[in-house]
């Protein structure tokens, strides 16, 4: 079973002469433990792909199956609790980390666990364990403003992993980092994909950062223009 299965995914903004095809007939699959990249220039539709797969943006048509659940079949499947699917089965990593500024590193991870009903000591234990794994054991009580870019992104990765999701979607996770930190984050993602058996889809415009990824999808004008390249 694929962790992500996308068929004919299309997103069109506007109607008539204002119509813009942001994503056209995209199809791909990502297996558990696989690390894939979606690359392309700005405005090519890669973020649209991420937001439609991530249940943020409703597609115009197509099919999306996440961790065995059909979430899009033409449009969002009625009756599905999309927020619940997002918090239980998806993890998100952002370009500018998006840590909650008034929570410490450990609390930023705990908040994701709390949303999934994991509370108290268990939540704290799991959060500390995750941050330790990401070499942040000494930064648990630091606020986001007290962390370096690389550290903040590792906290964000820990938050994304907190609920052991089968799918992790990362939007330009290295854009705000220097090259070394960027490479470190990508290395970490590769490691975590295998360790957690999660499918990780990284959207980036920087092709230098995708070295060692399992497959790379290139998107231009809303279309996957090249067959996935296995690196």
């Amino acid at each position: 079973m694929h962790a992500i299965e996308v068929k004919g995914l299309t997103k069109i903004y506007g109607k008539g002469h204002t119509e813009v095809v942001a994503l056209a007939d995209a199809s791909l699959t990502v297996s558990p433990g696989e690390l894939v990249a979606v690359i392309g220039p700005s405005g090519s539709g890669k973020t649209t792909m991420l937001t439609t797969i991530g249940l943020i943006n409703e597609p115009t048509r197509g099919l999306v199956i996440l961790d065995g659940i059909t979430v899009v079949d033409g449009s969002w499947v009625p009756g599905l609790d999309l927020k619940r699917i997002r918090r239980e089965r998806l993890g998100f990593i952002f370009q500018s980390y998006n840590l909650i500024p008034f929570l410490t590193a450990v609390e930023n991870v705990i908040v994701a666990l709390n949303l999934n009903g994991v509370r108290g000591k268990e939540a704290r234990m799991r959060a500390v364990e995750l941050l330790d794994k990401l070499f942040l054991g000494s930064r648990l009580k630091n606020y986001p403003t007290e962390l370096s870019g690389g550290e903040a992104q590792r906290v964000a990765i820990a938050r994304a992993l907190a609920n052991r999701p089968k799918v992790i979607l990362a939007d330009e996770p290295t854009a705000a980092l220097d090259t070394d930190n960027g490479k470190n984050v990508m290395e970490l993602l590769k490691k975590l994909a295998v360790e957690h058996n999660s499918a990780i889809m990284v959207v980036t415009h920087d092709s230098r950062m995708v070295e060692g990824f399992d497959r790379i999808f290139e998107v231009h004008d809303g279309r996957i223009t090249h067959e996935p390249v296995r690196t």
């Binding site: 927020k83 997002r86 918090r87 239980e88 998806l90 952002f94 998006n98």
Partner: peptide, 11 residues
């Protein structure tokens, strides 16, 4: 912050 909370599935 609110957008992030919503994105990670906050009711």
């Amino acid at each position: 912050v609110i957008a992030t909370l919503k994105l990670i599935g906050s009711p």
